[in-house]
Amino acid sequence: MIVAQQKPINDIAQMINDCKKVLFVGCAGCVTVCLAGGEKETEVMASAMRIKRTLENNPLEAITYTCTRQCDPEYIASLDNVVKDVDAIVSLACGVGVQYLAERFKDKWVVPALDTKFIGGSTVHGVWEEKCGLCGECILHRTGGICPIIRCSKSILNGPCGGSQYGKCEVNKDIDCAWQLIYDRMKALGKLDKLMEIQPPKDWSKSRDGGPRKAIREDVMIDE
């Protein structure tokens, strides 16, 4: 899932300081699971913002709506009637949702309430870790199911670098060295010989370095 975190409440408040009526839009997708922008978080943010503005003698009418997903046109279409008289829309979705709202509601001031962090998963309740670098060409079959692109601080394909010690990364003792993990796992699987192959330079054109990407499935497209 996409993991996001809320911006400081005062930063968001600043963005909508001159608005009288604001729509807070939650998303029931990834950001609900990572507890950053689901229905509950949206209610809490709207409530906090109303209180803050009342205290500042600048009352705010804050309304809320939570979409099934903000990254699909049909799910944000239901906002069409809700947005009519608002001065701004605060999106509690990832960066995708913010952009979908901005694109659909061209005359509205749309602002982000979250910082979109990474894609990953939870380890224990309340802790999420980055696991995938979205490089566009998966190599996990060569690295024992552990991604060096995102979990190695240097994205090294022929690791580990000289900074790996006691299983930890040189960047921070709290970061596991991805290449130590890869080595351990390949060793356990009896596949260390695979690590002796020199992995060639990566084709980064399949990552974002090739420009914004698109995925197309002709067979499921609906003819107009």
């Binding site: 240097k154 994205s155 090294i156 394909l157 022929n158 670098c161 040189e170 960047v171 330079p201 990566k202």
Partner: peptide, 22 residues
């Protein structure tokens, strides 16, 4: 190369387009 975290520009983007082996 040492990670930029250790230097005087810790906010820099690191490249690592290719690694030392490559």
């Amino acid at each position: 190369g040492d990670h930029q975290k250790f230097g005087n520009h810790p906010m820099a983007k690191n490249v690592y387009d290719i690694d030392s082996m490559q």
